[in-house]
Computed example of a mutant assay.
Amino acid sequence: MVLPAMTTKHRIFTTSFASVYPFYIAKAEKKGRTKAEVDAIICWLTGYSQKALEAQLKKQTDFETFFQQAPKMNPARSLIKGVVCGVRVEDVEEPTMREIRYLDKLVDELAKGKSMEKILRA
C-alpha cells in the first residue's frame, strides 16, 4: 500500500505576522534604525500601504495569508540575494517561504546599516 506524500506546512506560515513584526522592529532599532524604515521595507516588498499594513497587523493575519493578500509584490524583489539563517534566499523554492526570506534579508540589511536606497534596490 502506497500512502500519499504528506506535505506539512512550515509553522511560520500559520504564525501571525503581528507576532513576529515586533522582532523586526527590535532588530532594526537595536542598530539605530527605525520602525518607519521597517514599515517602508515591508510596504515596498508587498505593495501594502501603511494603513493596510496596520490593518493586517491588527487582524493578526498569518504569514501565508499576509503574503497571499499582498496588493502587489515588488518585481524588483528578485534582485534580493544572499544568505538568511544559513539559506540562500534565491535558492528557496517554496514561494511563500521565499517571500518570508526576502523580508528577513531586507531587515538584516537594514540592521547592518545599508542605505534605504540600496535596500529598496533603487
Rank of each mutant, 00 (worst) to 15 (best):
A5F: 07
A5L: 08
T7G: 00
K9Q: 15
H10E: 13
H10I: 11
R11D: 11
R11L: 15
R11V: 15
I12Q: 02
F13E: 14
T15Q: 13
T15G: 07
S16K: 15
S16D: 12
F17S: 10
S19H: 12
Y21V: 10
Y21G: 09
P22L: 14
F23N: 10
I25Q: 10
A26Y: 10
A26G: 15
A26I: 12
K27E: 10
A28Q: 05
E29I: 02
K31H: 10
G32S: 01
G32F: 07
T34M: 03
A36G: 03
A36C: 01
E37A: 00
E37Q: 11
V38P: 03
V38L: 11
D39T: 09
A40L: 08
I41K: 09
I42N: 06
I42R: 09
C43L: 11
W44I: 04
G47F: 13
Q50W: 14
A52N: 13
A55F: 04
K58T: 09
K58H: 08
D62V: 06
D62I: 05
E64P: 04
T65Y: 01
F66K: 13
F66Q: 07
F67Q: 11
P71E: 11
N74M: 08
A76Q: 09
A76M: 07
R77S: 11
S78Y: 08
K81H: 08
K81P: 00
K81V: 04
G82C: 05
G82D: 08
V84C: 08
V84I: 10
G86P: 02
G86R: 05
V87P: 00
V87I: 14
R88N: 07
V89S: 06
D91K: 10
T96K: 07
R98V: 04
E99W: 09
R101E: 08
L103A: 09
L103Q: 06
L103T: 07
D104I: 01
K105T: 03
K105P: 06
L106K: 02
D108F: 00
E109W: 00
A111W: 03
A111K: 00
K112T: 01
G113H: 03
S115E: 13
S115K: 13
K118V: 05
K118N: 12
R121M: 08
A122S: 04
